[in-house]
Amino acid sequence: MSGNSFYTRKLHSLLGVIPLGLFLIEHALTNYSAFEGGPEKFQKSVHGLHDLPLIFFLELFFIWLPILFHGVYGLYLAFTSNLNTGRFQYGRNWAFALQRITGVLTFIFIIWHLWQIRVQVALGELTTEEFGSKMYDIMHNPAYFVLYLIGVLAATFHFSNGLWAFLVSWGITIGPRAQRISSRICMGIFVIMSVLFILSMFAFRGDEFATVSAVAASTLQLG
């Protein structure tokens, strides 16, 4: 990479938390609304997001460009690391290795997930009203379900452990006690976010999501 890698690495660390980590939390909550309130609540959450002003620029500057930079530079960082968990089987060394493995998995998963949803919307093949039924179809394919499960766990781990590393890299948690406590908090975040995503994955399997596009279409007609 050209330029000074100190600043590149700092930017990489920052973007992982702000905005990408915040977006992942938002995504977990939007999906969870499917578990909490079924298709209506999920649809409301989706619309609430898509109705934000300047949505194109929000997506461009707070999601697409940060993901592109964080992902591509992250692949380069993973390439420059050795994995030596065979020799040093300490928890933190495993977290180091998993951070790189889940990073690569998450990047691949996000590209696939974007292709399935966001790109189809851009191509006019999918509307925001059809998200529920689209997820119903995906979650009823056993292979897709497993791949989504792996992708979601990889993403939440990568974010939670990355948050721990962010606190160290920016000099916020310095001593071993502070780093131990922040490690527990971050693993708590990993568990909570994983549960939110997995519950919403099961919620999308419910029959009420199969007909959500029909419901949306009929309400449109009624309206």
Binding site: N4, S5, F6, T8, R9, N93, F96, Q99, W164, V168
Partner: peptide, 20 residues
């Protein structure tokens, strides 16, 4: 000196160093 290429940013927090 540590804020240039190959400086402190290279640390990936595996923490094997402190154990070794």
């Amino acid at each position: 000196a540590l804020m240039t290429d190959g400086g402190i940013e290279g640390c990936g927090n595996s923490q094997n160093c402190v154990r070794s």
